[in-house]
Design a protein around this nucleic acid. Structure first.
Lengths: 141, 141
DNA sequence: CTAACTGTAATTGATAATATTACAGTAACG
DNA sequence: CGTTACTGTAATATTATCAATTACAGTTAG
């Protein structure tokens, strides 16, 4: 799994937790434990996909512009990491003579496409809001 | 996803395709397109898990000792790559003060545990035998 | 005894992931 | 205005991970 997916989810949960839904890249970076430049890159992507609004300049930052309960992890997954299940490494080779070796890439690919869909379906049941709720439960326990 | 999972699946399908269910690490490596030493490592693991038998010495090699239709990708996944969905990279830090940052690792972890189970369930519907059948279909088409 | 194997570990090389730095562009605020 | 505090983006370094390769001890058939 793409670690940018994790950063995106964490950032969205943090924004949802903020009363105004707003934070700067530095605040988010501190919370996520990474570099502000990386946050800016990931949240720039989330902006293009319509999850957050950004304001440049002094006092600027990132604002969540969707209801936390309506943003599913599947939405985030599609935006950040779709198809990332299959490893870059590939077995077999379509050019070879052996029936198994020459067809394996295609068959393996279809297996991973199905897995990706399965994963997306699972993620569609989890929202940014429900993750925040889980965190609050843990805190109270 | 772990690429050893792919190597394991490919190797098992190849063995299933062989009349005697047998091949040497070099034959498998050629078919998979990797190095024999890597095959030996992966299939050594499959031996420990009871999928194949190995014979050392001259004329030795690897033999499939299960029915291809009864070996599911979930079995292989558990043996080779269980829990490999979650990235090594971790966001947040349990030591920090912020509720979100300090609990994110745990919550994220539970999300990925669920995803892993989901994936395993999907893989349990696919067998080495069914993959070989798919390959044969493609070949005929 | 030799040839053909597996088992395993160490080393190297390649690639990808992450952190860091740098700086241009933008907006608030005095 | 000019200064300060931000984002956007790219380039560069640094690490970490993955895969190939090499090496060699142990095993078995003939």
């Amino acid at each position: 799994m793409n670690s940018e997916f994790i950063i995106a989810v964490h950032s969205l949960v943090l924004l949802a937790h903020r009363p105004e839904g707003t934070a700067s890249s530095e605040e988010i970076a501190t919370n996520v434990c990474t570099h502000p430049a990386r946050i800016r890159k990931v949240l720039g992507c989330l902006r293009k996909e319509g999850f957050v609004a950004t304001r440049e300049g002094s006092g600027g930052g990132y604002t969540l512009i969707k209801e936390p309960e309506e943003v599913t992890l599947a939405d985030v997954y599609r935006a950040m990491a779709a198809g990332s299940l299959a490893p870059s490494w590939c077995s077999g080779n379509p050019e070879m003579e052996c029936m198994v070796g020459s067809n394996m890439q295609d068959v393996m690919n279809s297996v991973f496409c199905g897995a990706d869909q399965q994963l997306e379906q699972y993620f569609s049941q989890i929202t940014i809001g429900s993750m925040l709720a889980q965190i609050r439960e843990r805190q109270n326990a």
